[in-house]
């Protein structure tokens, strides 16, 4: 058995094999591997006795379940109106300059992916962003560069 096969089987043992288990399984794959690749989806489909198309259809619906390769750290900068008013553009530019990537891209070392996202629920402390599950608020270009650099050394 391949690693993925084993991993998916363990998840199905843990969460169950009914349709309701699909989201928790996909979510844990994302937690561990940052995205769900084709091999994982095919294995999930087999374990849950669904068609691979069903699994892909579900996974691709959700913006936090990526189906293309992502970096180890996914940066999601809030682009909704109040964060925008408070200077999210400058924060984005600072991240782009530091990582030398554009929105949607992954660094060549596969460490970071830069994305934008809709309201994170921190408008009163904007601009805000997530790095994986961790929240950062009241960002400035200077502050965000420090944060990114601290992740570079992780």
């Amino acid at each position: 058995m391949s690693n993925t096969e084993n991993f998916v089987k363990e998840l199905a043992d843990k969460y169950g094999r009914s349709r309701e288990s699909l989201m928790p399984i996909l979510q844990e794959i994302v937690d561990v591997q940052n995205y769900v690749n084709d091999e994982a989806m095919v294995n999930v489909a087999r374990e849950l006795d669904l068609s691979a198309a069903e699994v892909y259809g579900t996974a691709s619906f959700y913006s936090f379940i990526e189906t293309r390769e992502m970096g180890e750290y996914i940066i999601r900068v809030c682009k909704t109106i109040v964060c925008d008013m408070k200077g999210k553009e400058a924060v984005l530019r600072a991240i782009e300059d530091t990582l030398k990537v554009k929105i949607g891209e992954t660094t060549p070392d596969k460490k970071f992916t830069l994305l934008t996202t809709n309201c994170l629920g921190w408008c009163h402390k904007g601009p805000a962003m997530l790095i994986n599950n961790e929240v950062f608020t009241e960002l400035t270009p200077g502050k965000v560069v420090d944060i990114i650099e601290s992740y570079m050394h992780k």
Partner: peptide
């Protein structure tokens, strides 16, 4: 799910 832009009270 609190996704409405500008809402953060449930958090």
């Amino acid at each position: 799910d609190e996704g409405e832009p500008g809402t953060f009270k449930d958090r």
